[in-house]
């Protein structure tokens, strides 16, 4: 049985841990709201671009002369896995889930005899992936220098990926991130980003009006493809941020509750041993008085 003093110290230590988790939970809740509104603000652009891409893609035949971003390199050998993680911990299994999905995909591709490379965004994915695939990391992007990743970061990542693609360093790129469903549910998601899959948005019928293109459809499509990639990355970063905060909120809520339970248990134990000590003392006094 721990002494009274030890118990007291233990209770205090759990209490201060609870304070931290509680504070982190509140911060996450506030940041989640911000991340959600950022994700919402990005929706019009992404939606419209996807609609335009869909209507263009339905008009353009994919063939020899198509842009490489749409048609692919003609090979399927080297796969680049772009893994987007967060920079901070204290968010439950958020990063672990994304890394797990990426590793599973990597094993699957390796089993098929493909070459796998990684491109890592964010700090928390580096260590676990480096441990399992030490030589496969082709690059990475550091987001620790900015408060929150925005379109500028997405643009830099996209440009770097495009340069690698142009240099023939990979044939297919997959993006791993966590889609935000709710504060309780974040879904690790895999998405092929290069070659760009044709968007599957229902093409809005413009009343049969003939649309003029300037320059022609193919030129516009070639121009829009890199932008589409940037928007996809930007969307993924935003989803990731919202997911991180959601996961953090849930994890910290659990931690706070667990700490509360622990404190309750320890307090009961503390009181019990205190009473036992008092009883023993009383018994000793009474026994002493009777002996006189």
């Amino acid at each position: 049985m721990a002494s009274l003093k030890e118990l007291k110290l233990r209770i205090n230590s759990v209490k201060s841990t609870q304070k931290i988790t509680k504070a982190k939970q509140m911060v996450a809740a506030a940041k989640l709201r911000k991340a959600q509104s950022a994700a919402e603000a990005a929706r019009p652009y992404a939606g419209r671009l996807a609609a335009v891409m869909a209507s263009l893609a339905s008009k353009v035949q994919v063939g020899e002369g198509s842009p490489k971003l749409l048609a692919g390199t003609g090979k399927d050998q080297v796969h680049l896995l772009v893994v987007a993680n967060s920079d901070r911990g204290l968010c439950g299994a958020f990063n672990a889930n994304i890394v797990k999905a990426a590793k599973a995909k990597a094993q699957e591709l390796i089993a098929e005899g493909k070459t796998v490379k990684f491109y890592l965004v964010g700090r928390k994915g580096r260590a676990p992936i480096r441990r399992d695939f030490p030589s496969a990391i082709a690059g990475g992007f550091d987001t620790t220098t900015v408060r929150e990743a925005g379109f500028a970061e997405a643009e830099k990542i996209a440009n770097e990926l495009l340069a690698m693609y142009e240099a023939g360093q990979f044939d297919v790129a997959h993006l791993f991130y966590s889609r935000f469903r709710s504060a309780l549910a974040q879904i690790p998601t895999t998405q092929q980003i290069i070659p760009v899959p044709a968007p599957t948005v229902a093409v809005a019928n413009d009343g049969g009006a003939v649309v003029d293109y300037e320059p022609d459809e193919e030129a516009i499509l070639a121009d829009l493809l890199p932008r589409y990639l940037r928007v996809q990355l930007f969307g993924a970063l935003l989803e990731n941020m919202a997911s991180e905060q959601g996961a953090s909120m849930t994890a910290m809520d659990n931690a706070t509750r667990n700490a509360g339970e622990l404190i309750k248990k320890l307090t009961i134990q503390y009181n019990r041993s205190r009473q036992a000590a008092i009883t023993t003392e009383l018994v000793e006094i009474i026994a002493g008085a009777e002996a006189l």
Partner: peptide, 19 residues
């Protein structure tokens, strides 16, 4: 400022796409 020249858009313009 379109890639192939400036263009003005008024109400009732024909459907059109340009970089």
């Amino acid at each position: 400022p379109g890639t192939e020249g400036e263009f003005g858009v008024l109400e009732g313009h024909a459907p059109f796409m340009s970089t």
